[in-house]
Nucleic acid binder design. Structure first.
Lengths: 239, 239
DNA sequence: ATAAATTAAAAGTACGTACTTATTGAGTGG
DNA sequence: CCACTCAATAAGTACGTACTTTTAATTTAT
């Protein structure tokens, strides 16, 4: 017995799924029964279940049981960060200075294409971030929030740490998922002017989508960065 | 009783650390004793410990006990990916075609500055990746492996999926941590020629450092990507 | 038919006990 | 003084039991 019992149970369950013995979508026998069937304690089985759930193979729900949702485990990697701000690649202590806000319709802006807000329109917030007061900003961003949250406009006033935090505070919304894309683009005119670069210079663009606890998209941000003063750092640890 | 017992225990321990009652570096009483002192079972305390360990506050070692290694928990975010290949932003099924290899000394290349291999030299592997055989490559990479693994050179032969996988297979080494940086740069001459771009065009550059199970740096890679055909996508879920 | 209340099933939490394993620090011998 | 053995210790694994919470499903009332 080289490995632990619970990891052998885990392998066993995965094998049964992959060998076609059990199928994706099936509900497993209840913990008590499966444990008895496998000849292990419920606690041991639960450790195996927990691991398979984290790997995206199983989904557990009270009263509804444990379902198979995938036949291949995704190895998980944990990002080592200090918070969502860092996931969004903003320093913890930079400030977002707002230069303008306006309301835009679905599809009127490239980054929103294919997306829709319940109200059919979005609040666009344009602004910049600085490292040092005396230097030009290193970032120029356009942030879109769904109509539902358009009421934050007055609260934005002079400047904030970040828009999503204002929403979190005002509505109790919580970011539960972030999906982002990092690109290299030729700097567009407006961003170049704001950051003191030349149009066409290489810049980093990060387009992020923020989802709330109910997995509803509530913010889309498109941020452009001066590559001399900004890179994206990611530290991932294999779990 | 609004929360669970183990999470209250967790908060309690964290509070004692943050209030200065216990200090970073200290060893906690052994599980049995602390559990008794807190009036909970050892199992419950262990759940709290496990959570604090994952958040980087505690470090547990058999026989040596549980130490406090930080006073502020890092919220963890899990990257939703299919594997390390994706962390390294390579499609699962692209092939790395090697164009040349050579040995270089510490400090002779910019991306290696400040780093050192035990042998004082690195094996440099230069190559490209293609999406489609009939199109120019979308990526041009230079990969450096420490002298310890220089023996893989013959095994690289015609082309491989990725260099780190060859090392994993040949030496049983496992990637346990990846630290990477994404930049936007003006495309250098060699990369431009390889990818069919013009020198100076904006391109994405990803510099990654791979660490093994003993946290030793074993590979440094610098990869340049055609921004038209490649972006970095990250999906993170708040834990 | 629809909404509200009830029930019961399945996962979640917690405790206690017993045994196993890895490691460190002390002891022992060359 | 170094290497090697050994024992004690603290964490790790596992089991079993008891009770709680959530929620799907059923029943009852409107």
């Amino acid at each position: 017995m080289t490995t632990t019992l619970h990891s052998r149970v885990e392998d066993d369950i995965l094998n049964r799924i992959q060998s076609g013995d059990w199928h994706v979508g099936d509900r497993l026998p209840k913990e008590e029964d499966l444990a008895a069937q496998l000849g292990v304690s419920r606690s041991t089985l639960r450790i195996a279940f927990a691991s398979l759930e984290r790997k995206g193979v199983l989904q557990r729900k009270k009263r509804a049981g444990t379902r198979i949702i995938s036949d291949r485990p995704t190895s998980r990697f944990s990002m080592v960060t200090g918070g969502i701000s860092e996931v969004l690649s903003l320093g913890r202590d930079t400030r977002f200075d707002i230069s303008s806000t306006r309301s835009v319709a679905d599809d009127s802006v490239a980054v929103l294409s294919g997306l829709e807000s319940e109200t059919g329109h979005w609040l666009e917030i344009t602004g910049t971030r600085k490292i040092d007061e005396n230097e030009p900003p290193f970032n120029w961003s356009q942030i879109y929030v769904t109509g539902r949250y358009a009421g934050i406009a007055p609260a934005l006033g002079k400047g904030v740490t970040s828009v999503f935090e204002v929403i979190e505070d005002a509505f109790g919304t919580k970011v539960s998922r972030v999906s982002q894309k990092v690109l290299a683009i030729a700097c567009p005119d407006r961003a170049a002017k704001a950051m003191g670069l030349a149009e066409g210079d290489p810049v980093l663009q990060i387009v992020a989508r923020l989802y709330d606890q109910d997995d509803r998209l509530f913010e889309v941000s498109s941020a452009t960065f001066d590559p001399e003063r900004f890179q994206v750092n990611t530290d991932v640890r294999v779990e």
